[in-house]
């Protein structure tokens, strides 16, 4: 209980500050805004759909970092193959 209480205190505004910073810096460093990322995602969906059937709802495009190295990560789930042989 005391541990819970201590942990609760840890969740002050500093934690929010850190999370917000991590998010904004990933975009700052890449020079890519959140809205650019959305536009990129829409275009990726269009381009890939022309060749492969994908689960449009499940697509995610995000920036990540390991130390100071930026990465653009796209996760594109394929559509369920309803016509697959049984």
């Amino acid at each position: 209980m005391i541990l819970d209480w201590l942990r609760g205190r840890e969740r002050g505004s500093a934690r929010t500050a850190k999370e917000r910073l991590q998010f904004v810096l990933v975009h700052d460093r890449a020079g890519v805004s959140a809205s650019t990322l959305e536009a990129l995602k829409d275009e990726l969906i269009e381009a890939i759909s022309r060749h492969v059937e994908i689960d449009r709802e499940g697509v995610s495009v995000s920036l990540t970092k390991d130390r100071r190295r930026q990465r653009l990560v796209a996760d594109i789930p394929l559509a369920e193959r309803r016509t697959a042989k049984h």
Partner: peptide, 18 residues
């Protein structure tokens, strides 16, 4: 303030800035 979790601590800032 750091103790109360209301100010970024050195560790946080270093982790963010690397």
């Amino acid at each position: 303030m750091v103790r109360r979790g209301e100010m970024l601590k050195a560790e946080d800032v270093l982790e963010v800035l690397a």
